[in-house]
Design a protein around this nucleic acid. Structure first.
Lengths: 234, 234
DNA sequence: TGCATTTTATTTGTCGACAAGAAATCGACG
DNA sequence: CGTCGATTTCTTGTCGACAAATAAAATGCA
């Protein structure tokens, strides 16, 4: 294998390059590795991935379609800003989707759904145990996405996943600042929610989901008002 | 100026070609001019619009991002099918968004919002009067979009507009089959909804929106079960 | 004739290059 | 010394062409 190492990864399947750069950029943006306002350079990405600008451009178009990057015509393209001003409107939408999806899960779940949900919850608990903030975000989103799937309404799950993605950056800030305090409380609340889902108690599911969501929102808003004061102090 | 007329419309602003073909294809798909399953040929569009395949490709990527077209890798791309099987889940989502946006409009609207809403309602009434099905769809969506805007939650309005677009093809089928019977009832229901929004009666707004949405859903489902029977008879 | 395999043909995905647009740099003039 | 304008530079948008992948057609064989 001495002749092949001139190019370590020369082989790329025909349609895979776009998804690769799309997934990577998406993750880097949502995990705040690329903070809001970061410039996105096409040629830089092109030589980094050893491909032409065309597939990179396609990935950027997709990201722009999801609102993760902003493209000024004929000018630069950059990572979109987090809309702190309308954050409360985001949380209103998030709470509603939490409630709806959990309620529907209690109504329509099947046996196989519960297995997936329990597995996701175990992964979340493990992430909390390991104090891995990034894993907490991912597994938490995966758990709630699984709950939404159990509700058997693809439109709701689509809207919900969209919202979760949009908020992943805010959650990242949240977990970033709280990685000392273990959110064990979330684990317990999740357990309660899963229990009432399994029991098909629709009203309780709605109530617990509302409380769970509003608790998170309250924590985050507390964090941001504190940060606001810090910003003003500067 | 005899040398310049070899190309009648050679001038195109630099970034406008993409939006042009995007808007056109989008309208043609949503208005069922391009029915589900229609093949989309890149080179055909390229020569039709007198431009390279690159900007057409970008427009197609955007449309695929919104789920309006399906792209099989390395193979054809076609207009996406309407998901009749999960249609009731769509209506569940639509009813909920109708309720939420109308409720929020009653809560948060301002004086200038009512002006816009009244204007949209007048346009819808005019479309009904003229028995213009396409205009009914457009003005009805515009009216409800304006109501959502008055709710001052950009996330809800975004999700709602997305849903309205996805359902525009179903509504097209609906109005197509009912263009003899005037949906004057919708006009009246709209008037009632606008009245309670103006009165800031949140509960009544929620109730009327729910009834309005469910009435529409009921009509459409009635239509489709009838069509189902017709299909079975073939 | 029927089936498997090769060949052709068509369509997509990718590339390198060029042109347009806007910011930055430089220079001239008041 | 500052301001306005031209030029340069840098990035994006577009183009034409080529390569890969797949379906369709053609060929060979039993």
């Amino acid at each position: 294998m001495t002749t092949a190492d001139t190019k370590s990864i020369p082989e790329r399947k025909r349609g895979s390059g776009v998804r690769m750069v799309y997934d990577l950029l998406r993750d880097e943006i949502l995990d705040l590795v690329l903070p809001p306002g970061s410039p996105i350079d096409e040629v830089q990405l092109a030589e980094r991935f050893k491909m032409s600008r065309t597939p990179i451009r396609e990935a950027l178009v997709r990201l722009a379609g999801e609102g993760l990057i902003d493209t000024l015509p004929n000018r630069s393209t950059m990572v979109s800003n987090i809309d702190f001003l309308n954050m409360h409107t985001y949380f209103d939408a998030l709470v509603l989707m939490y409630r709806v999806t959990t309620r529907l899960a209690a109504e329509h779940h099947r046996a196989e759904d519960l297995k997936v949900i329990h597995a996701r919850q175990a992964e979340f608990a493990a992430a909390v145990q390991a104090q891995d903030a990034l894993a907490m975000i991912a597994t938490n989103a995966a758990l709630h996405s699984a709950i939404a799937e159990a509700g058997r309404n693809p439109y709701f799950t689509g809207l919900f996943n969209r919202l979760l993605d949009e908020g992943r950056r805010i959650l990242r800030l949240y977990y970033q600042s709280y990685n000392d305090r273990l959110p064990q409380r979330f684990v317990d609340e999740h357990e309660d929610m899963i229990a009432v889902i399994a029991a098909r108690d629709v009203d309780a599911a709605d109530r617990l989901a509302k409380a769970h969501a509003e608790q998170i929102v309250h924590q985050i808003q507390k964090l941001f008002t504190r940060n606001e004061r810090l910003d003003m102090a500067l």
